[in-house]
Simulated assay, not measured.
Amino acid sequence: MYGQFFILFAMIVVGYYGYRKGWLTREVNKGLGGLVMQATIPAMLVTTIANIEITNDILVGFFLMMAAQAAAMMIFGFLMRLYGKARKLDGRLLDMLDITTGSLNNGFIGLPVAAIFFGDVGVMYMSAGVLGLNLYLWSYGVYVLGGKQGGSGGQMGKTFLKGAVNPNCIAIFLGLALTLSHTVQFVPQALLDFLTRLGDLSTPLSLIYIGALAGSSGIKQLFHEKDALELSIVKMLAMPFLAWAVMLIVPAGDMAKSIFLVTAALPAAVVVPMMVEKYGYGEKMSSDIVLLTTLISVVELPACVWLAHFLY
């Protein structure tokens, strides 16, 4: 396991060093992120899910995990809203705080971590979190950030479909369709090999992207943002603790409990500051929280992975 931790850290360091040396510019890294989310991760999801022998228990666990993670994000975001009120934060920032701290970066970080430490079934359960995140962000998230007005039902539906129907979600359902219908055997082997090779790029490129994101942020300056730092620390300590407490009473399988615990230690989702800029207020603090929680997760995630293996 320690060798896998080294891989995780080393790839992040490569991205950080590459940005600081000028090999990766902000524009190049943005393009790299787009490549990962639009091409390599969907390829990984299709081939991984399509090649899993899905039992009824795994399928039920998948949809329960999706619902559980969406619910956890809503509940924890609400708790952080209460914390912000108690700390007398500017009231205009509470909607941003709710969605930013409730969100989880299942895509860029969650899926690579699941692939490294938990194998194909872990990726399957983490992909349920990707669906849960999209459901959360593009329905509840837009509703909250838009001042709980949201426009007409039709407008809300269009916003949800535009955000939620994306390559990752399509890839998850395509993979499920292929394995449940046993039609993956009819897909040309050359195409499967291509998608597998493309999907194999997801872990290194995702971690390099995260490292470069940290390299572009001006880490010293970030740690002077006292409110964002406090909120980030609270999120990264409280959310895994609450997830562990919930798993004490929930009769889930060991893999589901492990993924749920590790997911709770993920940083805030990278897409949220862009949503805040479009629909709400507080994009700067949202971005700071995303970057700070990402930095904290570099230390916290290995600890939670170890704890998950130890407990379950």
Rank of each mutant, 00 (worst) to 15 (best):
Q4A: 15
G18E: 07
L24E: 05
G33E: 07
G34P: 01
V36F: 04
P42V: 12
A43Y: 04
I49H: 01
N51P: 08
E53I: 09
L64P: 02
A70I: 12
A71Q: 08
I75G: 08
F78G: 10
L93R: 02
D95A: 14
T101R: 03
G107T: 13
F108E: 01
L111A: 01
G119T: 10
G119A: 08
D120L: 08
M124T: 08
Y125I: 05
Y125L: 15
Y136T: 02
Y136N: 02
Y140M: 11
G157E: 01
G157A: 14
P167E: 02
N168A: 14
I170S: 00
G175L: 05
H182Y: 12
F186H: 12
Q189K: 15
L191I: 14
L191M: 14
L198S: 10
L207K: 00
Y209M: 11
I210G: 00
L213H: 08
S216D: 14
G218T: 08
F223C: 09
L229I: 05
S232H: 05
K235M: 07
M239L: 14
W244N: 08
G253W: 02
D254V: 14
T263A: 15
A264C: 05
L266T: 06
A269L: 11
V271H: 05
M275A: 01
E277K: 15
K278H: 11
Y279G: 05
G280M: 02
H309V: 05
